[in-house]
Amino acid sequence: MTPLLQVENIAKFYGARVGCKDVSFDLFPGEVMGIVGESGSGKSTLLNCLAGHLTPDAGAVRFDTKTDGLRDTVTMREPERRMLGRTDWAFVHQHARDGLRMNVSAGGNVGERLMAVGARHYGQIRDTATDWLGRVEIAADRIDDRPTAFSGGMQQRLQIARNLVTGPRLVFMDEPTGGLDVSVQARLLDLLRGLVREMGLSAIIVTHDLAVVRLLADRLMVMKDGHVVETGLTDQVLDDPQHAYTQLLVSSVLQV
């Protein structure tokens, strides 16, 4: 089986400081990988390098493109990479306002990616947008409201709809539940989990919340100081952590 994403020795430096270094892994179709670590561990830097938002200083990020097989997205021309960014890839930001156009209606937000890849039939765009709002549990009559009129959880669900509408194969998520109330979080996770399974999505989820990865991720990568200290099956890493840092991380979670 060809991996969907093949990451080889990615490194990113901020001057003398290490953003992330020596990161390698393969992600296979349908796999969901969690990246955990504390703030400053390099997990967001890594995610941004993988998604093409940052240019890594070393290494390769090969993506299994529909037409040409594995291609290094680091050395790929920018138009191609940006095209991937609005077709095969999706990026869910922690803050909905980074991932939404706040002055555009919910329908327009969802429709943008469709129009970006050439959809030119208003009725069809609107039907697809309505369908997707339903799938993320937003009432159809909110389609012409702007996200500024939405709650935090709704904004995040809208962001997900906007990203998934073009049927991407790989979703990058940066703390998708951060800053939400616990009850809202649960609903969002439930939704994400269903969509990931239903659409057979591969996903890379960066979070510091171990409960989130236990629920969503098949496998786990633990980062500290820019390095990967442990990887493995999610429940194995959480239930039988091998590295000192992972043990500390797992044992620090408060029990409820």
């Binding site: 138009p79 609005r86 555009v104 327009g108 943008e112 129009m115 970006a116 208003y122």
Partner: peptide
């Protein structure tokens, strides 16, 4: 430069929806 003009249609979409 990359001919990414989807956004222009978003404006027209907003017009029709409103």
């Amino acid at each position: 430069s990359l001919e990414e003009y989807g956004l222009m249609h978003v404006k027209l979409y907003e017009d029709i929806s409103q």
